[in-house]
Computed example of a mutant assay.
Amino acid sequence: MVRSLLVVMAALVSLAASPVLAWGAYGHRTIASIALENVKPETRAQIRKLLHAEPELVTPDCPVKSLEDASVWPDCVRRDGDRWAYTFPWHYQNISVCKPFDIKANCSYGTCVTAQVGRNARLLADRRLPAEQRLEALIFLTHFVGDLHQPLHVGENQDLGGNRIKADYGIATGLNLHSIWDGPEAERAISSASPPLVRRYSADEKARLATGTVTDWAKESWEVSRDFLYPAAFGKLPCNGSEPEHVVWTDAAIETAIPIVDERIERAGLRLAKMLDEALG
């Protein structure tokens, strides 16, 4: 019980100090660590080489000394809106859970997370580009694969992915549904995972988890929002009647969500590893 309360308090401090971020820093860094543990040695060497171009980014307040740093950099630089405001729509793709899944929805001119995963993978693989451009692509790819696996960055119900829904997390008040999944729910799931999520996965595990296309990954997140997340929050299917203004993410929902979150994090990390091997190996 004490451990759970400490996790909640730490998550709330993190949320109070920064804007709402997909998975929060802990989730993104965990995804990057899983990927780094599971890439090929030559891929790891290429990542280290690209990180040498970090001074060319000219973002001293958002350093990138590791892949884990890269995983949170796109959220860090959002504080500098003059330079980076154009990247804000790249972090999500609002696909209604009350309509049939449509990968082309709300992605004009590639300004959505699914398009940017593919774009940055191609840029990273292009060895004709300067190192700093490929490093930027590595950073965005690492972050956006994580974003894509956060259900509320894809499946939503005209509420900005749960940001408009006030929510309590057990005894913790003053949050919203999106921030709960970014922060305390993810913290609880990652911290309690057994075995730990950051490890070298077996070939069988990779074959089971590191599957599918970007479209498949988006649809998985959309289905989690439609089939579990909104019904658990609302106590009913999300498209039946008006949406509540305030919900309680109950202890039962917290516990049920843990294996779902863990699998989303694992899949993101292993799929990122596979993409990095393909682009850099």
Rank of each mutant, 00 (worst) to 15 (best):
A137Y: 05
I34N: 00
D126L: 08
E56I: 14
N38Q: 09
S33W: 07
A115N: 11
I103D: 04
T30P: 07
P63D: 12
L6R: 14
H91W: 03
S14Y: 10
A125D: 05
R127K: 15
M9T: 07
T43K: 10
G110L: 07
A32N: 09
V39Q: 01
L15T: 02
N94P: 08
I47M: 08
A25T: 03
C107N: 04
E54D: 15
I47K: 02
V20H: 09
Q46N: 10
I95Y: 00
W23V: 06
T111R: 12
D80S: 14
G118V: 04
E54G: 07
R122M: 08
V97D: 02
R122I: 04
S96V: 02
F101D: 00
P41L: 05
R48W: 06
L51E: 03
K65V: 05
L36P: 01
P89E: 06
Q46T: 04
L5A: 13
H28T: 10
E54K: 06
K65E: 15
P100E: 00
L123M: 15
G27K: 01
K65F: 13
V7P: 02
A11P: 02
H52K: 14
R29P: 01
C62K: 05
S71D: 08
I139K: 01
F88A: 14
K40C: 14
V58W: 14
H91N: 12
D102I: 01
E136H: 05
I31M: 12
A121L: 01
D61H: 13
T59E: 11
H28E: 12
L124D: 00
C112I: 04
F101H: 00
T114C: 09
V97R: 00
V117T: 01
T111V: 07
T111F: 09
K104F: 09
F101L: 03
P60I: 11
R83E: 13
L15D: 06
N38I: 03
S108G: 15
K99G: 03
L67I: 15
D75C: 12
K49E: 14
A16S: 10
R122C: 06
T59K: 02
R29T: 10
V39C: 07
G24M: 01
E68T: 12
D126G: 08
L57T: 04
D61E: 15
L21M: 12
A17N: 15
L123P: 03
S96G: 07
R83N: 11
R83W: 12
A22C: 13
